[in-house]
């Protein structure tokens, strides 16, 4: 493996790890349910994306073929993350979870 590939992989892993960590911190720090929803759904998008890219670079540079399965994993994640976020938000609105005080606007009920 060339040094360039190694640096790229390390950088991508660090970026991915950092964003996943920040997502987790967001989950702990943000004040109410709806704002917390943003932390994890976003961390997966960029964090997993970066980890997946590093895996693709690793397997291509060691000559084991381009990792199509990694790309598929990311595609599945990108397809399912919005749906689960949407279901969580809907469930929260249904049972009337409290929003933080300075939230403007209201969830409608219908």
């Amino acid at each position: 493996m060339s040094p360039l590939a190694e640096y790229t992989i390390s950088a991508l892993l660090i970026i991915g790890g950092a964003f996943t960590l920040i997502g987790a911190i967001g989950l702990a720090r943000l004040p109410d349910f709806f704002t917390r929803l943003h932390g994890p759904t976003k961390a997966t998008t960029l964090g997993v994306g970066a980890v997946m890219l590093s895996s693709v670079v690793y397997f291509s540079s060691t000559g084991q073929g381009i990792g199509i399965s990694e790309i598929l994993i990311t595609v599945f994640l990108f397809l399912t993350a919005p749906v689960s976020a949407n279901m969580l938000a809907k469930a929260a609105m249904h049972i009337g979870v409290k929003t933080m005080d300075n939230t403007r606007g209201k969830p409608w009920d219908q």
């Binding site: 709806f34 929803l37 943003h38 759904t41 976003k42 998008t45 960029l46 990108f78 397809l79 993350a81 919005p82 749906v83 976020a85 949407n86 938000a89 809907k90 609105m93 969830p107 409608w108 219908q110």
Partner: peptide, 18 residues
């Protein structure tokens, strides 16, 4: 569009009107 909104950080699409 709703999935895009949920994927881009900072916004989550929560519901669609009937």
């Amino acid at each position: 569009l709703a999935s895009t909104i949920s994927l881009t950080p900072g916004t989550v699409s929560a519901d669609i009107s009937d």
